[in-house]
Amino acid sequence: MAVAVKPQTIEISADPMVPVPYRVLRVRRETPDTFTLELEALTSAFGHPSPVQTGEGSGVRAFAPGQFNMLYLFGVGEVPISISGDPAQPEVLVHTVRAVGAVTRAICALKRDEIVGVRGPFGSAWPVAEAVGNDIVIVAGGVGLAPLRPAIYHLLNHRHEYGRVALLYGARTPKDMLYKRELSEWRGRFDIQVEVTVDAARPDEWRGNVGVVTTLISRANFDPFHTTALVCGPEVMMRFTILELQKRELRDDQIYISMERNMKCAIGFCGHCQYGPNFVCKDGPVFRFDKVRELFGKREI
């Protein structure tokens, strides 16, 4: 039996469906179809006198690694895109977008000074606080590196709080890799193990590993009893990655994954992102694996 709840009384002005305009500062081409946009809140947005403050309703909002925004392109539509910038610098909003549909193609075609609408940030975050003191193994596939990058920034900004850190990244070809310059910078550090692999390559274009990302897991240095794994990529990649992590004796509650589903609202109203009892927009996108294990193996949930 449904029990009546008293509808909460709040100011109607805080409409979570209304985007805030942001200006494009810079667009960088990562791969032939993937672009990174840097955005800045418009000072004139809604006549807010000073958007440079964090909090609801202001232009700049603090975000946690793993969260996403809804990006709106005037008259074209809106899509959920994870935030890929440094959480310590929320004044510049960074999104890496792959052109796969009408809206993302239009977003990737944006030029400096053009305007994009932003709603967010939404969703759950990578457990960077809970993982303090642990070894961290990050496994990313394809554009799955984008939602993980804020976590990597956080780990490197707070490097002394963590044990060993391993970043394992797989892409289809060297051309499909995101953040190549940063990856090589990170490789040059002594305090993070970076292993990158591609499905196939010519020797003249690639000096790194060839093979699927799951083959890197046996090479990562971590203590299985004190490790947190952060995994992001297509579901099939995450499935096989989890199998390998389990072989290295990680428990399911040490593994975190980031899920992707269709979203129209990002606030739990549109119903599109349901994943069993979860709304990926608010209960996810980051889930501790043991919480979704029963669903993860089932088809078409």
Binding site: P7, Q8, I12, A14, I267, F269
Partner: peptide, 15 residues
């Protein structure tokens, strides 16, 4: 009552 819970009882409110 059920739709009240969906739209007015969570973190976000449908105005």
């Amino acid at each position: 009552f059920i739709q009240d819970r969906v739209f007015t009882n969570g973190k976000f409110i449908d105005p």
